[in-house]
Design a protein around this nucleic acid. Structure first.
Lengths: 153, 153
DNA sequence: CGGTAGTAGTTCAAATTTGAAGGAACAGGG
DNA sequence: CCCTGTTCCTTCAAATTTGAACTACTACCG
């Protein structure tokens, strides 16, 4: 008797191995996607900020909101927006409702940059991530990620 | 007719949404696990290096091999091992077979540190990751990650 | 009002990460 | 043996990330 009786055509994965595989694969995947995007002069985090702003109402988001969605600390977001601002892709505006707050707003230049970067990045994600998902993998993965997200604090 | 006909009880996930959810959830998960591990005075990358060395033959690995498995650039690994070395958890030894190379070796101190850290970290991974996996989620996730890994360059 | 606690972002120094450049050792012709 | 090209790792400067202050403003209570 082993601790892993064969229960089907696929042997059951050991929980800890699943974690390790998940962790390593995630790192490899994002590293590769990042490397390809950088050839076009943009980091993955730069791109994600542009994406979030583009999808936002009026192409703007409060700094705090943006930090939440990027899973960034406040200071990291502040730096990140600073970089994009210097590049002319984003602008900071004081928030009308709350004078403490700021909004990051996508500039026309930023929107053009996003549109320019999107095709290549979409192809990279398609090739490196989506293409590997077979059958209902995408739905299963989405369901699993959704459960993980809801469990998180 | 929409572009997403209902094909079952669960609506099909849009590919791009799956990618975004995967990306964001991964970030939240590792950020939280990292934060908890750090309360015990160790970063997640520190821990991963200790883990790889502990599982290696003779508790040693070539720097290059370690870099590959950590998905680290050579310079990043060099720095990381330097940190662990200063802490007394790892030692560098010149490689006998190839005088160009070095091996990172876990010290007794390092092994003790690993054993001290493991319980809490295992609980964190259990609570934040494994607990959210229902039914055959673990197997499916492992299969998907395996396919992703094999697709990567 | 005035005081007090809490919130939103920024800033600064220290730690980490990146990417280019360099030094030493192997490999394999010529 | 002596080149020449390659591998393995380190080093250095610049860019990024962290975490602890710090500033300005809001919210609420007396």
């Amino acid at each position: 008797m082993t601790d892993r009786p064969a229960t089907g055509p696929e042997a059951a994965a050991r929980p800890w191995d699943v974690w390790q595989l998940f962790f390593e694969t995630t790192a490899r995947l994002t590293t590769e996607i990042e490397a390809r995007l950088k050839e076009h002069g943009c980091s993955l985090m730069d791109y994600q900020v542009l994406l979030l702003l583009r999808n936002a109402e009026d192409h703007r988001l409060r700094m705090g909101e943006l930090a939440q969605r990027m899973v960034f600390s406040p200071s990291r977001l502040s730096y990140q927006v600073g970089v994009l601002e210097k590049r002319g892709w984003v602008r900071r505006r004081r928030c009308a409702q709350d004078a403490r707050g700021l909004e990051a707003e996508l500039t026309g230049e930023g929107l053009r940059a996003f549109r320019r970067l999107r095709p290549a990045h979409a192809r990279d994600v398609e090739e490196l991530f989506l293409r590997a998902l077979e059958g209902d993998d995408a739905d299963r993965l989405a369901a699993i990620m959704g459960r993980l997200a809801r469990t998180l604090p």
